[in-house]
């Protein structure tokens, strides 16, 4: 009983009240939700934040009609290849990026509105055996793809009309790249995590692989979410979907690790552990915005952490409508989007 599990916590820390429900989106045509995100959209001279929802076969754009009400603007139907995820393009406007594929990403497409033809359309940006993809500031997209013969890491500069303006190949590490994160405040720096449990650093301008640093084997399959450089150290927010519970720190969902890029040495800065009562492998998927992390737990609840203090700040239990399946931060710190598989999404102010 999830409510019973959460009772000790609600009196002693994270509170559901920290998350205030702002509005609900119910997509009755969506039978199996795969992702939710936000996008800046400019229409008739005004720029506003819109919600993007994805099912396996279609992606829908929602506009705010009233403070607590959303209306569907358009739905892109994408054919036979299922949608796997929406790839947020942080500061892009009127551009939605999606990854499609079966077991892994096979193609990346841009969804957009063309003022030339006065119609919504989609275009192909990349195909391949794509292992990881990330959207960066200034309409840049980085992806890693791997076949038996070739390992490629590439940055694509996207155009507003759905094409690519430029491409830059980055030097691949030996191991498969599992995730990327932009280094905030350093436009040309990018970090990635690999299947060999290392953090790698690239120079995006030259394509150089600058450094490979060991994370440590106690937390396999770590994924990087965010990075920033301060006082000569590189701070990386990692999540640990497969971490096991230990006596010293419980079950870490997120960890902030400081790396010295000069020496490759690292030190743990802060753990963010699962709330009490949640044991074992409980983390399904998560998202990081600024210094807050959110994750869906196997109980069907969503937990929110203050990553710098290592404190679980809020827990959203599964409601009568069912378990939560997705947790995403809205762009610009506009709130938390929680989604269920049945096409129900809640926007919370945090």
């Amino acid at each position: 009983d999830v409510a019973e599990l959460l009772t000790p916590m609600l009196t002693d820390g994270p509170r559901e009240e920290s998350l205030q429900l702002v509005s609900e989106i119910k997509d009755s045509s969506c039978s199996c939700t795969v992702d939710v995100s936000t996008v800046w959209w400019e229409a008739a001279g005004s720029r506003e934040l819109r919600v993007v929802t994805a099912s396996e076969s279609a992606v829908s754009l929602w506009e705010p009609l009233a403070p607590d009400c959303w209306g569907k603007v358009y739905t892109w139907h994408l054919g036979e290849i299922p949608v796997i995820q929406i790839v947020p393009l942080l500061d892009a406007c009127n551009l939605v990026c999606v990854a499609l594929g079966e077991l892994e990403i096979g193609e990346i497409r841009l969804l957009l509105y063309s003022s030339e033809t006065d119609s919504f359309k989609h275009s192909l940006v990349k195909t391949g055996n794509i292992k990881a993809v990330v959207g960066l500031k200034d309409q840049r997209l980085v992806s890693s793809s791997r076949t038996m013969q070739e390992h490629q890491v590439e940055m694509v500069l996207l155009s507003e009309t759905g094409g690519s303006k430029d491409r830059q190949t980055l030097m691949p590490p030996e191991e498969t790249v599992t995730a990327f994160a932009e280094v905030e405040g350093m436009r040309e720096a990018l970090v990635g995590t690999t299947a060999g449990n290392t953090v790698v650093v690239w120079n995006l301008k030259t394509g150089q692989l600058l450094r490979k640093m060991n994370i440590g084997y106690s937390y396999p399959a770590s994924i990087c979410h965010r990075a920033y450089s301060d006082s000569g150290l590189l701070f990386v927010v990692l999540s640990h979907p497969h971490a096991k519970e230990s006596e010293s720190c419980g079950s870490p969902a997120f960890r902030v690790v400081a790396f010295n890029p000069r020496t490759g040495r690292s030190a743990g800065v802060m753990f963010s552990c699962l709330p009490p009562g949640h044991v074992g492998r409980q983390y399904l998927e998560g998202d990081v915005w600024d210094t807050t992390g959110a994750a869906v737990l196997t109980s069907g609840a969503v937990a929110v952490w203050d990553l710098l203090r290592g404190r679980c700040a809020a827990v959203l239990p599964p409601g009568p409508g069912g378990h939560w399946a997705l947790a995403r931060w809205a762009a610009g710190g506009a709130g938390l989007l929680a989604g269920r598989r049945d096409g129900t999404f809640h926007l919370y102010r945090y």
Binding site: N203, T206, Q208, G232, P261, R262, A267
Partner: peptide, 23 residues
């Protein structure tokens, strides 16, 4: 963090590593 555990720190690590790494 304990600086001695992490070794000598450079504020210009990105530029320095870019100058040293193979192109």
């Amino acid at each position: 963090c304990n600086e001695s555990d992490l070794g000598p720190i450079s504020l210009n690590w990105f530029e320095e590593l870019s100058a040293e790494a193979p192109l």
